[in-house]
Amino acid sequence: MQCSYYDAGLCRSCTLLEQPYPDQLADKDARSRSLLDDPTIAWLPPVASAPSGYRNKAKMVVGGTVDAPTLGILDGRGRGVDLRGCALCTPGIQAAMPALAAFVTLAGLAPYDVPARSGELKYVLVTEAPNGELMLRFVLRSEASIPVIRANLDALHRALPRVAVVTANLLPEHKAVVEGDREVVLTTRDTLTMTLGGIDLHLRPQSFFQTNTDIAERLYAQAREWADEIGPRSVWDLYCGVGGFALHLAAPGRSVIGVEASVEAIESARRSAGDLGLTEVRFESGDATRFAMSAGDAPDLVVVNPPRRGIGAELAGHFERSGPRHIVYSSCNPVSLAKDLAMMPSYAVRRARVLDMFPQTLHLEVITLLERR
């Protein structure tokens, strides 16, 4: 993939850009196999992504001035570097960037100056659904700019008819985070519909969703294929997010429980289950480890899709002592996956597969099927 920003030294986030994509994929597969280090694992062929245009969410730092805003990153001195043409983003997100920059000027939204700690607009977060609809989130220093955004929503919709959800996120603190806790919805709709595998997942502003829509669909399909082979009567989906795994694993006569710390994500998952009429699928808000350790008998199958740190010693130890027959472990960090597996020697990795969720970078997703020995 050719990138003028990379060539000019403006952005070096894509650390593998100079490596041919087939070699990137092969190296990720080899690295994952080496970390798990078990010749008995049946490795499926790695799943390739489109090398560019795959990111369904852009997190753009707003810099520059009201009349000449930048959307991208900050340089070492806190000045805006414009990356609105980033080729990793979906074509729909790329196409929306000029209109978003123009809206910053139209609404008079002063970009936040990090060194001076002045200004209002810190980030613009854009998510594109498979049907082309967009969610826009303006991360603001205070409520002062909300009225002017409301007043110009019609102009925003004229410029970007595909915008379905607009929110203001409030981040008053001066700290290195992307968003604050408070979200103000400015449109009638408050969710973006992400349709994967024929299932509508309702994405709320602060809910996690996989970055690569096509690979996420393949990921859920792989888990469903393994589950259907196993035929569990009961399933837990821990760290379930908006319910991607749980809803794809639902089947007649199969009880599924999804657990997630985010209340917003659980609300989305419940809505999806209701839309589908799934009476044997339910979702609970809470800590995954606490749920597993207090729930009593283990189910036939547990699905875990934890953050990069992995499931950790406490949950791994619980599974080792009293866990289910099978675990599907989907990991965005094979290093923490290997550490967790080392704490569960009673489980053997029967199958594994690398899915390239993040081309041009070292990051990846690996899904494994574990079986108690």
Rank of each mutant, 00 (worst) to 15 (best):
Ala216Cys: 08
Ile199Phe: 04
Asp181Pro: 08
Leu192Ile: 00
Phe209Cys: 07
Thr195Gln: 11
Arg218Tyr: 09
Thr188Phe: 10
Ala216Phe: 03
Ser207Tyr: 08
Ala216Ser: 06
Arg204His: 05
Val184Trp: 00
Thr193His: 12
Thr191Gly: 13
Arg218Gln: 15
Ile215Leu: 12
Thr211Tyr: 02
Thr187Gln: 03
Gly180Asp: 03
Ile199Pro: 14
Asp200Val: 01
Thr195Ile: 05
Leu203Ile: 12
His174Phe: 15
Gly180Cys: 03
His174Asn: 15
Met194Pro: 07
Leu186His: 04
Glu183His: 02
Thr213Ser: 07
His202Ile: 00
Arg189Val: 01
Leu170Asn: 02
Thr191His: 15
Asp190Ala: 12
Asp214Lys: 10
Arg204Ser: 04
Leu196Tyr: 06
Arg182Ser: 03
Arg189Cys: 11
Pro205Asp: 06
Ile215Thr: 08
Thr211Cys: 02
Leu171Val: 05
Asn212Phe: 08
Leu192Lys: 09
Leu186Asn: 01
Thr193Tyr: 10
Gly197Cys: 04
Asn169Trp: 06
Glu179Met: 14
Phe208Gly: 07
Pro205Asn: 10
Thr193Asp: 15
Val185Thr: 12
Val177Glu: 11
Leu186Gln: 02
Leu186Phe: 00
Val177Lys: 08
Arg204Asp: 00
Asn212Tyr: 07
Arg189His: 13
Asn169Phe: 02
Phe208Leu: 07
Val177Thr: 13
Thr211Lys: 05
Asn212Lys: 08
Asp200Gln: 08
Gln210Asn: 10
Arg218Ser: 14
Asp181Thr: 15
Leu170Phe: 02
Thr195Gly: 04
Thr195Pro: 00
Glu179Pro: 03
Asp181Gln: 15
Glu179Arg: 05
Val178Asn: 09
Asp181Glu: 13
Asp214Ser: 13
Leu171Glu: 12
Gly197Val: 15
Ala168Val: 07
Met194Phe: 14
Gln206Met: 14
Leu203Pro: 01
Pro205Met: 09
Thr193Glu: 12
His174Leu: 14
Leu192Phe: 02
His202Pro: 01
Leu203Val: 14
Ala168Glu: 05
Ala216Val: 06
Pro205Gly: 07
Phe208Pro: 07
Leu186Met: 01
Gly180Lys: 07
Thr211His: 04
Arg218Asp: 15
Gln210Leu: 09
Phe208His: 04
Gly197Pro: 00
Thr195Glu: 13
Val178Asp: 15
Gly198Tyr: 00
Ala176Pro: 14
Met194His: 11
Thr211Leu: 04
Gln210Glu: 14
Leu186Thr: 07
Arg189Tyr: 07
Leu196Ile: 12
Phe209Trp: 08
Met194Asn: 12
Val178Glu: 15
Thr188Gln: 14
Met194Leu: 14
Arg182Gly: 00
Arg182Phe: 01
Ala168Trp: 01
Gly198Trp: 02
Arg204Thr: 00
Leu171Gly: 09
Val185Ile: 13
Leu203Trp: 10
Lys175Gly: 10
Leu186Cys: 02
Gly198Asn: 05
Gln206Phe: 12
Gly180Phe: 05
Ala176His: 15
Leu201Thr: 06
Asp200Gly: 06
Val178Met: 09
Leu203Met: 09
His174Tyr: 13
His202Cys: 05
Thr211Val: 11
Thr193Ser: 14
Asp200Glu: 08
Ser207Gly: 10
Thr213Asn: 05
Thr187Asn: 03
Phe208Asp: 11
Asp214His: 10
Glu173Thr: 01
Asp214Leu: 10
Arg204Phe: 04
Gly198Cys: 01
